[in-house]
């Protein structure tokens, strides 16, 4: 078995309002940082997994993203997959 590391990003779809992002945006301007046009909050999930090969690791991550990590009604996902075998 080979070791893989995946970094999965989950983002709210552009059409979905992000009230938490809006709140942080307003805090950013209170901090004195001007010029922020948009600020949206997502999630980063780091997964360390075993698989025979990269194709299998990819299948596992895609299943996780599709069925568990993201709700595709409101969220998009993408990921980076790295072979971490020494």
């Amino acid at each position: 078995m080979n070791q893989f590391e995946a970094k999965v990003s989950i983002r709210l779809r552009p059409s979905v309002l992000d009230p938490a992002g809006e709140a942080i945006k307003s805090a950013a301007s209170k901090l004195g940082v001007e010029g922020i046009n948009s600020l949206r909050i997502g999630k980063l999930i780091e997964v360390n997994l075993e698989a025979k090969e990269e194709k299998e690791a990819k299948e596992k991550i895609e299943l996780l993203c599709d069925r568990l990590f993201a709700n595709k009604v409101i969220e998009d996902f993408d990921y980076d997959l790295k072979d971490v075998n020494e």
Binding site: V16, L17, D18, P19, A20, A23, V73, I74
Partner: peptide, 10 residues
């Protein structure tokens, strides 16, 4: 169908 997410006014 649909989904439930964070209230608009938090």
């Amino acid at each position: 169908p649909g989904v439930l997410t964070t209230n608009k006014n938090l």
